[in-house]
């Protein structure tokens, strides 16, 4: 492999990691907040606000419904507003994050809803305030699911980042398309597939390990 080709791989890898890392961080922070808000404001929740809850849920569904590649294009004006350009790695971070926020909100919401209602009742009986229940009961008890959801999220993000090549974001997916597909360099295509497999597998195993670490339910 020529040094220039090796450099291209390294750069593409770096771009993928940047896109995934930044979007995942934004998405998990915002998604978890939104999920908490959805669970807390639900009817029968800790701070029931049925109308806010419904509105929030509809917004999340709208973003869940739009396929990523379309969202990418539809959000171009918004992206320009935020990062000042519609090209490059940072331009891809905006739609990636928004796509993933909606996705992770639903994933985290499931974990938060799965917390045994008896635990919340016991906490109330012991004189916990509502914020104590969120902090000491709901979040820690849902943590294994939240961490498991993060794994799914990171992998979904690696997938979606391949499409971000369409806005000139670079990354491994973009490299595979340009060299492997458009220039018929099948070898590049396969090498990138192998890199992606290794990447996804490590994320999966790492995530499972972390999930087991924080799970004391069995």
């Amino acid at each position: 492999m020529s040094p220039t080709m090796f450099e291209r791989y390294l750069r593409a890898f770096g771009e993928t990691i940047t896109m995934v890392g930044v979007s995942v961080t934004i998405a998990i922070a915002s998604g978890l907040t939104l999920a908490l808000l959805l669970v807390a404001t639900a009817p029968g929740g800790l701070y029931p606000r049925p109308r806010l809850n419904k509105g929030l849920s509809v917004v999340v569904n709208v973003f869940r419904a739009i396929p990523f590649i379309i969202l990418l294009v539809a959000l171009l004006p918004f992206t320009r507003m935020i990062v000042g350009t519609t090209l490059g790695t940072w331009a891809a971070v905006v739609p990636l994050s928004i796509h993933l926020i909606a996705f992770y909100t639903r994933v985290a919401q499931v974990s938060l809803n799965e917390v045994d209602h008896g635990l919340i009742e016991a906490a109330r009986a012991m004189g916990f305030r509502r914020r104590h229940i969120v902090r000491h009961v709901i979040l820690p008890e849902a943590l294994p699911g939240i961490v498991g959801g993060m794994t799914v999220c990171v992998i979904a993000m690696i997938n979606a980042s391949a499409m971000a090549g369409a806005v000139g974001a670079g990354g491994l997916g973009d490299l595979a398309i340009r060299y492997g597909y458009e220039r018929y360099e099948t070898r590049v295509l396969f090498e990138i597939i192998v890199i992606l497999i290794v990447l996804v597998t490590s994320v999966q195993f790492g995530g499972e390990w972390l999930s087991r670490r924080v799970d004391h339910r069995r």
Partner: peptide
């Protein structure tokens, strides 16, 4: 208060 299913925090 104590409960049938104990309701202890697993974490």
């Amino acid at each position: 208060m104590i409960f049938q299913h104990f309701n202890l925090l697993s974490a």
